[in-house]
Amino acid sequence: MSGVVTLKINGQDIGAHDEESILQAALDNGIEIPTLCDLPGLSRIGACRLCLVEIAGNSNLVPACITPVQEDMVVTTDSERLQAYRRTIVELLFAEGNHVCSVCVSNGACELQDLAETLGIDHLRLPGLHPAREVDASHERFILDHNRCVLCTRCVRVCDEVEGAHTWDVTARGIESQIIADLNVAWGDSESCTGCNKCVQVCPTGALVDKGRSVGEMRRRREFLPYLTMMRKENGK
């Protein structure tokens, strides 16, 4: 049973289906909320925390991507506090890896770069951690550059949920976390990888890219995602 609820987002009256997320309702009404881990068509994990919003009467911030709308909810998506938190979170990401946009294959097609721009980040107050990370170029068609990975796990989810290969996973903990293929083999040696390139298409940064491209040449195609998910739904999955 689905019904329609009315709520307020940033003072604007909005009608939405009751199984919709706050994020979806906002987007449908032209209200942008920054996201990173979320990608329509994949399961939602509420991990990046960029989409946190304020709800009147709730002292906790909630992730808009996985919180369903409710009747009479009063949502704020763009307070000064939220914007400050988002800037810090994006800064944390830049400081965590080695994100050198100027020499990145994804320069100009990167969601991290876009986030910095839209949030008005013009420098990093936090010191870079400069971890020594590897580049895995063992696959014949693609490259995984751990220096640029933001651990959004989109690749893990698309591979598991859409392609069904479950090649990718996350190993270790905390700041040491890392994407691995199979049981930590070089990607080129992975027996489960079908070479479908879906992970490369969903990666938000320059971490997963086509081989042979130069700086700023990477472009992503993600049209397949909603279709595939829709088809799987219709097939009763």
């Binding site: 994990i45 991990a47 990046c48 925390r49 810090t88 979170i89 944390l92 990401l93 400081a95 965590e96 936090l126 010191p127 951690l129 933001v150 651990l151 996350v170 270790a172 903990r173 905390g174 700041i175 040491e176 976390s177």
Partner: peptide, 21 residues
Amino acid sequence: CMEESCGKCIPCRVGTAQIYH
């Protein structure tokens, strides 16, 4: 906390490391 953070969300994964430093 930095060493025990699971690494899933950004503020805890990187924030605890920055605070520690």
